[in-house]
Simulated scan of single mutants.
Amino acid sequence: MININNLGYSYSKKVQIFNKLDLSFASGKIYGLLGKNGAGKSTLIKNITGMLFPTEGVCEVFGFSPKKRQVGFLKELFFVPEEYYLPSLEIQELVNLYQDFYPNFDVNQFNTYLNEFKIEKSKRTTQLSLGQKKKVLIGFALSANTKVLIMDEPTNGLDIPSKITFRNMIKDSFKEDRIVIITSHQVRDLDELIDAIIIMNGGKILLNNDKEQIAKQLQFELSDSSKDDATILYQEKVSNGYASIKKNTTNMSGYVDIELLFNAVLANKLN
């Protein structure tokens, strides 16, 4: 469990990102953390990972205070940043060097991921493309089997087949004692992957709900033309017609269009 209570963070006296932010992440869920640039996503992640320290309030990760950077905390958290560096080593050497930091690291699992991504373990990192390096890092992150896995824009640099492979890997490696937090601007990549959606803007949480609950509360429709319908909460023109959101008055749970939901929440149309 990750518990955040009354969190405050300021880069300076004039730049305050969070003020009394409350948020929690439960084990057994994959979270999609969404927001425009500058919404506070990266700052939140860095407070959770202990890369930044709260100016007030509490952030606890499975009982640990991230800012203390204790061994018990570090061995159960893996962070895949958007921008990263891999040392100039063979992939095998890289694994040998870092796997002991993570007690639950599974070498066979990592080898399987490399095979799925079609990457040879004997390759040096300097011989890999940007997308291949991302694949190696993702494979290592999943194989570490930490209780907390945070991935910042993990699908950047991946081609379409690799994005499908990535989603399958996340599903296959997921365990009930694990918390996965994924940030992305490419929300379509998360459609069938995440269990809960958190939308931020201006350092505040605008939406925090399970996708299953959203599917019960809202109905997403696509039509050829715009409708003048009082039951429509939000509508926008898309390439193949008009997409709209209504209150779900049925007993059925349908598809959740995360991109449309994101736009509606930012437009303040679902209150």
Rank of each mutant, 00 (worst) to 15 (best):
S24P: 08
R69E: 13
F18C: 04
Q109I: 13
P54T: 02
V148E: 04
I258Y: 02
E83Y: 09
I17Q: 01
K147C: 04
L7W: 02
S27I: 08
K227H: 10
L52V: 05
V71H: 14
S122D: 12
N115P: 11
F62C: 07
N37K: 08
H185I: 06
P66E: 05
G38C: 11
Y113I: 07
K67C: 15
D191R: 06
K211M: 03
R167Y: 05
T125C: 06
E93I: 11
Y31R: 05
L89C: 07
G50T: 09
I150C: 07
E153F: 08
F110W: 01
K175Y: 00
G57P: 06
A39P: 02
S122Q: 11
S129A: 10
M200T: 00
K204E: 09
L193Q: 04
R124Q: 15
P81W: 07
N108F: 08
P161C: 09
L261T: 00
F101G: 06
R188A: 15
I164Q: 12
N37W: 05
N240K: 13
V61E: 00
I182K: 02
K135R: 15
I245D: 00
N96Y: 09
L114A: 05
E60F: 11
M151Q: 08
G139V: 01
A243P: 13
L149F: 07
L23A: 13
E90G: 06
L218C: 01
I91A: 02
A144L: 03
F262I: 01
I170T: 03
E116A: 14
G254K: 08
F62R: 00
F262N: 07
Y113F: 08
L94V: 01
G38A: 12
V71M: 15
L142R: 06
I170H: 00
Q127W: 04
Y85W: 10
I45Y: 06
A230D: 12
F73Q: 01
Q213F: 10
I194T: 06
P161Y: 08
G63M: 04
P66G: 05
S223P: 05
E212Q: 13
S162I: 05
G139Q: 03
Q70P: 15
I2S: 01
K67N: 15
S226G: 09
I214N: 00
K123F: 07
E60D: 13
E83A: 03
G28S: 09
G32C: 04
G131E: 14
S253V: 09
G8N: 02
G8C: 01
I2W: 04
E83H: 10
D159K: 13
Q16H: 12
H185E: 13
Y9D: 02
G139A: 08
F73N: 04
A215D: 12
N271Y: 11
S27D: 14
V148W: 03
Y234N: 06
D191V: 14
L128A: 00
G131L: 14
D172L: 05
K237I: 11
G157C: 09
F64I: 03
P66W: 04
F62P: 03
T231I: 03
K36G: 10
Q70A: 15
K118G: 11
V136C: 04
M200R: 05
F101D: 10
M151L: 14
